[in-house]
Nucleic acid binder design. Sequence first.
RNA 1: GGUCCCAUCGUCUAACGGUUAGGACAACAGGUUUUCAUCCUGUAAAUCGGAGUUCGAUUCUCCGUGGGAUCACCA
Length: 482
Amino acid sequence: MTVVTRFAPSPTGYLHVGGLRTALYAYLFARQNKGKFILRIEDTDQKRYVEGAVESLQNALKFFDLNWDEGPIFQSHRTAIYQKYAQQLLESGKAYRCFCTSEELDAMREQQAKLKIAPKYDRRCLELAPEKTAEKLAAGIPFVIRQLIPYKDIDFLDTIRGDMHFHGKDIDDQVLIKSDGLPTYHLANVVDDHEMEVTHVIRGEEWLPSTPKHLWLYEAFGWTPPIFAHLPLLLNPDRSKLSKRQGDVAAEDFVAKGYLKEAMINFIAFLGWNPGTEEEIFSLEDLVKRFSLDRVQKAGAVFNLEKLDWLNAHYLRAKTTKELTDLILPLLQKESWYSDALPQKFSEAQKEKILSSVQLRMKTLLDGPTMLRPFLLDTLDYKRELFFSEKMKVDEATVKLALENAIPALEALDNYDEEETIKAALVAVIEKLGLKNGQVLWPLRVALTNEEYSPGVFELCRLMGKELTLKRLKATLEFFAV
RNA sequence: GGUCCCAUCGUCUAACGGUUAGGACAACAGGUUUUCAUCCUGUAAAUCGGAGUUCGAUUCUCCGUGGGAUCACCA
């Protein structure tokens, strides 16, 4: 038997990170078993349809390399099929027409709430005499088709949760076909999973309570149900179901914030699963090999980004300069101050060195442009306060003193290829002035970068070369002369 | 409210019924003698409560407690 899994989102917007994890697990399970992964669009509610959502869903999945083998299959194109099956249930007496208006149903639920009993359809239309039904039908009164849930218990085995047990009497007679003729999730989902020969339904825990309804449908049709695996929820920091409002939830938001797909996949995979060893760096290919449903957690996991930052920095550092360049260049080109001519003042070898120095400090891709700016830009927009440091005892006089003495020393130096020679030259200056390292080096570093954090002075001098280094230092001296 | 699910450091989690309850992230302290980052070392930090089963429960059972999901002509 070939394994078939599916990801079945409804096109109501972007790809939610919870959806990303569901898709990931379904994908991993299919790949690992040399099975098939289907993408199905559950668009049976035309009211909720969002323009462009299907496109963005597909783009997101492709971005993360979660490629599907079949689909996208649109449920909205399959209404005739659902109708056919609903008729079948009607004929076998396992479903019935309901003519109740939403006002009637609201009133009924209000009553039930008042009496403190569970809100549930009271089956008033089931009691309808056949003639009466025929009458309403002839009059063209709109109706829905409801499943007739038998009052018997339903047991099933969930791969993640173990034995499940539900009482039939607690289950509502779910609407299968809406008055507009379109199916509800419950019918469409079961029919499609059966027709597409889905073997493993991997979905979020929020579907657990409706699983008995689905099982009842399988039984009513005489079909063998698939294996169910209900994934634990992704949680907000307050442990409620992860939602917008408390932060970003769209996968694309994280991409826009400069997170790498490798980091995202690795992070998301470990929210609810672990390999049982102490390894934690896993590529998509590693996950395909190692993933297993029985190591999936039962409890929900808080979607906490701290570890994502760490993973992202890790994957960023693992990039080759070529890969990193390809990732940063588009971001650079979006900056108002950038032009393609700017990098040309550096040789290829220099560019590579600059990039790898910056690479070590990046947390997200967005840090790229910020950290590269001091190298690329001709003039920096200095801020005085940045030069001073109480901790290192650097005040305005110290800044000037440091610059005035460092400039001639660096001017006398011709070889900027070795940090050691630059260091020797500057250390000599520091000793001559009788200052501490930081008192000279801190102002120089700020003069070179105009940033609070950056590579060290010797490294900067080497990376920038003699010309740019001196230009920067002189510009700073002028800045303080005014 | 009914039904169902869940419960180990702040967070993600590990632990055939027998461990000083392990790891990672974050935090903190120190080192790599300029900032930041990297790297290294160290510190602090958890089995929700109560019974029971057992020679022995984080682990099995029950009862509490807490949290969550779900109860639409939405998925």
